[in-house]
Design a protein around this nucleic acid. Structure first.
Lengths: 214, 214
DNA sequence: ACAAAAGTGTTTTTGTTACACCCATGT
DNA sequence: ACATGGGTGTAACAAAAACACTTTTGT
């Protein structure tokens, strides 16, 4: 058998968050436009670790849910040199320090998935695939909790689902289903925001953990 | 940003088939035991193409369903040199020329997934992940048809499902569900095998295509 | 008092599961 | 005639969908 080929490899990360009721991706400024955060893999670095490192270095988003998505290796995907990209997606909880307040604010930007600027290489496709995967996972896992702040209302959680799926959900059925999953619990505190009845605040029972359902 | 790192990359393929009512994997003989078919990636070769090429070269199995599974990149997964493996799985229809009849018969071997020999590196984990993925896909796609010969009976299809899931299924419910999917059609011919009533032979309506359901 | 979002059950519909007998062939 | 797997429908149950009004706050 032939020895393994040496190939240029990168990591690309699709960092998702909910911004202003929209599913948004954090993009990094690049000479030729915008691209996904990412970069090289250390000689002795795990792929997951490399993804996390690039995310922290370029976006200051640590401690987020991270999952491998797909590996893109078409020879012509990078017109410069042949590069294989291992793509990941990350879920950033709402309530993290907003990018505008960070020193890196001029290097990155949140962009809504349905109004993305042109991205370098095949990064547009990578985002599209990540979005589909995320939407599919809503149906059979508790993954949406990874996009929520520590404490949240049921209406907020429902809005996140609706944003990702792109369709409205029935309030009573949604609540029934979520509570039956036994993945969140009441905190006892109330969110009083706006001129209306205060809402109960919930928290994840097992923060950081994604459960599969059914 | 740093330039992409050059890393040793390989392709590993998990070729599944149903042999003797068991889910089996085709293994390749290796100096240090058994391993999955696979190998290097050509400098200008697509990853999918490389997976298909290795499968043909090492196992003579062309024209099979092939899907990327996961990319394994732990730094210590290969004690020799650091190697990243892009893993695929393949589904081989029953009724292909059996391996024993091929000139490569002494280099490869079908092994049942529940009686695998020790495999090199992390290939055992790769097989386990592929098996889980395949079992999961039975529930929401017509992927099992990729393991069937051109013409097959409903009982044979049910047996394939049962073998992969490792549990028996109800005959009437299974038939109702499969026929409702509108993915197979009667050929008009009958399979008369054994001392009992002949069975209708079906064929896939869209051979080679995997539909998602629900 | 009004506007705005929170909270709450029941009915209907749909899909899933459980289950048993006759049929056509080879021996 | 008997053994073997092929073929078929219905009733019970569970899950999902549809649906409207009262409550609590801020202004």
């Amino acid at each position: 058998m032939l020895p393994p080929t040496l190939l240029a490899m990168t990591i690309d990360v699709v960092p998702f968050a909910i911004c202003a009721e929209r599913l948004a991706v954090l993009l990094a400024r690049h000479s030729a436009g915008w691209r996904l955060p990412g970069g090289s893999i250390g000689a002795d670095e795990d792929l997951d670790a490399a993804a996390r490192r690039h995310l922290v270095e370029q976006t200051e988003l640590g401690e987020v849910y991270l999952e491998q998505l797909y590996t893109f290796g078409q020879p012509d995907r990078d017109p410069g040199q042949r590069t294989v990209a291992v793509a990941y997606y990350a879920l950033v909880p709402a309530g993290r320090p907003p990018v505008d307040a960070l020193p890196i604010a001029d290097r990155v930007r949140w962009a809504s998935v349905d109004a993305l600027p042109a991205l370098t290489l095949d990064h547009g496709e990578i985002v599209a695939l990540a979005h589909r995967r995320l939407a599919a996972k809503l149906a059979y896992s508790t993954i949406a909790l990874q996009l929520m702040p520590e404490r949240f209302t049921l209406s907020e959680l429902q809005a996140v689902h609706e944003t990702i799926l792109g369709e409205p959900l029935d309030k009573r059925n949604f609540r029934k289903r979520i509570l039956a999953l036994d993945c969140i619990e009441v905190t006892g505190d109330m969110a009083r925001r706006g001129g209306h009845r205060p809402a109960r605040l919930y928290r994840a029972k097992r923060p950081g953990q994604v459960d599969f359902i059914k």
